[in-house]
Each structure stands twice: as structure tokens, then as C-alpha cells.
Design a binder for these strands. Sequence first.
RNA 1: GGGGCCGUAGCUCAAUCGGUUAGAGUGUCGGACUGUCGAUCCGAAGGUUGCGGGUUCAAGUCCCGUCGGCCUCGCCA
Length: 589
Amino acid sequence: MLRSHTCGQLRSDQIGQTVTLGGWVDKYRDHGGVVFIDLRDRYGITQVAFRMEESSDTQQLAASLRHEDVVQVTGEVVSRGPENKNPKLPTGEIEVRASQLKVLNKSKTPPFEPRGETVPNEELRLQYRYIDLRRPALQEKMVLRHRLTKIVRDYFDALGFLDVETPILGRSTPEGARDYLVPSRVHEGAFYALPQSPQLFKQILMVAGYDRYMQIARCFRDEDLRADRQPEFTQIDLEMAFVEQDDVLGVIDGLIAKLVKELQGKDISLPLPRYTHAEVMEDYGTDKPDLRFEMKIKDITDLVKESSFGVFKSTADAGGRIRGLCVKGAADKYSRRILDNDFKGIVGEYGAKGLAYFKVADGKLESSIAKFFDEEQQKAIVQRMEGEDGDLLLYVADRDKVSSPALAALRNFLGKDLELYDPREIKTAWVLEFPLVTWNEEDNRWDAEHHPFCAVHPDDVDYFETDPSKIRALSYDLVCNGYEAASGSIRIHDPATQQKVFDLLKITAEEAESRFGFLLQALRYGAPPHGGIALGLDRWVMLFAGSDNIRDVIAFPKTQKASDLMNGAPSDVDPKQLRDLHIKLDIPQ
RNA sequence: GGGGCCGUAGCUCAAUCGGUUAGAGUGUCGGACUGUCGAUCCGAAGGUUGCGGGUUCAAGUCCCGUCGGCCUCGCCA
């Protein structure tokens, strides 16, 4: 070993010992006759003092050290004494009086310093990710990720789950997200696809009798990125046989409680709250509500459809609704300009044509459009909104398809802007009973809401013939702080029901056979009832890290255009590689 | 594919209404200094204002295009 201790280890207990440290030069302070070096590794910082009277050569060499040089230092651990101790450092009671210094590797002047008080722009951080990863803030997140992963593995291991790896080179299935394709050299013109998730394999593992499976699985989706979405990401994937929905939910409840306990030291009460999809869509306008604050959406259509305000009236007549939010105490918080520009802009992104707003005063409404509502209507609106004097009321009048996401976005903005919650709080709940299918207006057909293997709520089987939109799936999402943090379902385990769903989705027998024939085949050989779920690992780490950016918790993330600024991926390849694969490029000018 | 924000010294930022030689802090380089810990002091170097075009007597600033980064709609079974 080139070191006897780490840079975070030494305390007063070691005074008098001769130690050897290795690390990076974090800061240097040259006083002429004495040089101080803050030596850093991922365990901490230790001050090393190089004094002329002890070794002139060593002290002179130390004077040449610069940021991020890698050095090996040997010396005696000494007390700094009461005047010179540094209470900011855990190692601040002591320093290493260096007798030997070896420069293991000089560093070029780094583009930025890990200890710098300002964080450089992300482009530079991604280009020099090896320096960025030296920053304590990022190292803490990597450690958190490790700990979380370890807790997850231990939890499932204790419950008898078996970690089974599934292939990375898989088969392309046209449904779902766009696939990342990998050309086969051996099979001319044929391609593998990287897995969007191990979905079909884990179901087949159930058929194979591995009744409790889990895997920390890398998944790939060639879709556009977001702050919480990367093209490759990690799922905590699991599947169980001989279970019902409650069993899966219970296992995950226990996991979340354990994570919160071990990572935050807090107890949460179980079971986690459960809402139906219909409930959260009505109350929050989204299937992934942020439940850290209230502010539910309220419907006032019945109160205003007879008013003289044309926009509300015509919306109601056209089958739309007038729904809105009551923002407590915010009547004077936002200027008219902000309401007309910024707020309208937020709902406008979702297609809302306008935003109506009122202040509540004396139990009535105040605004430029208040005159269109008589006193009785005004009082009824205030009552419906549970409004009090000083509250701000905001309304979007439109079809739910527009107003729901618009109001949900506005609500999220307000929650953050008005600091209605503690950003470190983890607030988790289940959303159950998703619709099995949704109508695709463009293609004029039913699409699976989750995926085509979701089991059907037993009470809703008759709706296949009458109204498929009313069929509830035995599927469940776990939402956390406004993110979809897990998603799963009980699966169909008999070929007849599976066929029924394929029929509804207009997937022909031939299509089904060619796309997922291997699964259908497997289901005919003794498939037990089964179900499972997958948790977004990166998102959970992000949530526990209190970050709103998934790149912060991935060691080597990709940019919004899915490139790696450090290594330049994706890149051109040698023409020979393409010839081997029989691939010709055809790039539009 | 659409919308928005951003790009000035190695880094973080400034530069008035379009107006003289584009500044500051920090880092870098040289020097001084034996107890600092954001060390201090003296001195120096460092710029194709992302790139290309246009408007103008004059462009970091305005316009168009383009490249890159971020946020977002669509997309993400």
C-alpha cells in the first residue's frame, strides 16, 4: 500500500504515529519557511505542514505543488495546539509534519477546482467529469446511491428474492419507446434491441418457477431526455408469483419504509396512502401528484355555467369544465403582469387559452371579470373553493385533457414558488386502478396505458364489449414528490385473457406471435398468477439526495442530446465496421 | 419536430441607449514571507465576446443562420 491512512481518518488518538498519506493537493499555502498543503481524498482533508527546519529539500519541493497534484506524504501526526486547530475539519485537531514528499503525478492546471465555491457550468463539468466527481457534493450522491442500492439488495435478499440477470442484447418490439438497435454481424441485416425493461423475461422467470425475482437492471429508451430522464437508466425490477396486488404493494411499502428509516432516520406509517387514478386526476390533474402540499383542483362548472361570462359559459356548453385552484394568502403575492404573462404562459404550454383569476375579499370576488358574476354566484364560488379573504383563485376553462395538465403544472409551480413544502421531505403514495387502455385519436384505436400484459380488474370484464375506457387494470404506480417513482401490475397469466386484450388493442394473432410469441408460448406451459413492479433507481436516489436533476446521481450521464461530453459518444465508426455489418449510411442533407 | 433561456479571460461574472484601449474576483506565472487554513503582500501574462453572415459611421450589445448546454411540449407500452 502506498498509504497507511486515508485523509479523513486521523484524530488526536494518532498523535505521535508516523503515517503515510496519499491524495490530491486541494489547497496550498506557502509561507516561505513553512508550506501548508490540504491533502484530499474521498474520505476527507488532512493538513500537511512542510517546515524548512525539518527538511529543507522537502519543504522546497512542497512549494512547487499545485492544485490536484497527486502526492504521497510521510510524517508524524502532531497536535496543532489550541490556537491553530481548525474546527471546520474533522481532522482539524492534528496535522501531519511531513518528513518525506513524493510527487506521484503532477496535474495540469485543472479547468476548475473541486473545492471551488462556485460550481462551473454543467457542460464543463460533464466534459471533465473525473474532476467534477471529485467534488464532495457529487461524491456524497455517489455514496448515497451505493447505500440505497445496498439496502435494496439486502431487503429483497432477506425476503427470499433471487437476483437473476436478463439479456442486454434482446429482441426489438415495435410497441412502447423507440429501441436502441445493435446490428448483428453474424445475421446479415438483423438487429438486436437493448431492453427497455426486462418485462417479458421476468414474467418468463415466473413461468420457470423462480417465484421471487429481483434485479437492478439497466434499461434503454431512445426518447428525448428530461431533467428526470436519461436514455439509459436503472430500474429496481422485481416480479412475484402466487401473489395479488396487495402482496406486491406490501413488499414495496416495506422497502420504502426501510429506505426512509435508514437514509433519513425517519419513521413513516404504513401502509402508504392509496388513491385511485380517477381520484388523483380529479384532485390534482395528473397521475403523479406532488402530495407534499394540498391545494386540490376544484370544479365550479355548475356554479358559473349560467353566468354572463362568455368564456366560462361557452366552455361549459361545449362539454368542458371550469376548474381551478385556491392559493392561500396569495391575493397580493403576484402582480397582474405576472398573472397575465408568467402564469398564463405556464398553462398556455398545455394548450390553455387563458387563465382567469380573482382575489377573495369580504367573502366575494375581486377582479376585472368579477362583474360577470352576481353576488350569489361569487359567494358560492368562494365557498366551493374553501376560499378566505386574501386568497387567490385561478381558473382554466377547457376540456379536461387541456385543463388537467395545465392546472397540475400551475399547482407544481405554486408549491415550489410559495415554498409550501420541505424540499427534503419524501412523500409517497400509491395510485391504483389505472385505465387498461386509452383512446388514441390519431390512430383511431385503443392503446395500452401500461403494457399489453396487465391483468384486468375482475369487476370490469364486461366493459370489453360495452366501453373499454371503463376497464380498470390491476396496475399501480408509486408516486413520490410529483415523480412517477415506480410502476407495475398484476399480469395476465392465461392465454385466453391475453388474447382478449390483444383483440382490443387490434394486435392480430400473427403480430402477437411475431412480437411476443415466446411469452405467449411460455404462458401455455403452466404459468402461475404473477405480478411485479419496477422502481426507478436513479429517481429514488435523486429524491433522497434532494436534487431535481437525475444527472447529479449518475456518475457518467448524457446530455439532452444524448451525448457523452467526456468520451464523445456517440461517434462515427470506421467504414470497415459498417462493411462488416452490411450497413450503408443514408443521411439527409 | 415545436417553444423558451443561455454562450464574454482557465473559471465565475460585469460592460448604461449600439459609442474611446472589453473590466473585476479567482485561478495561472514570477517574487516576498516560519503557523496558515478563502493566507497575505508586490508584480506580470491572459480575449477571434461559440461560429458564419447581415444592418450600421460604429456591434459583446440589433437581425438572420448555425453549433453547443439547460428547461419544456410532443414523445417516454
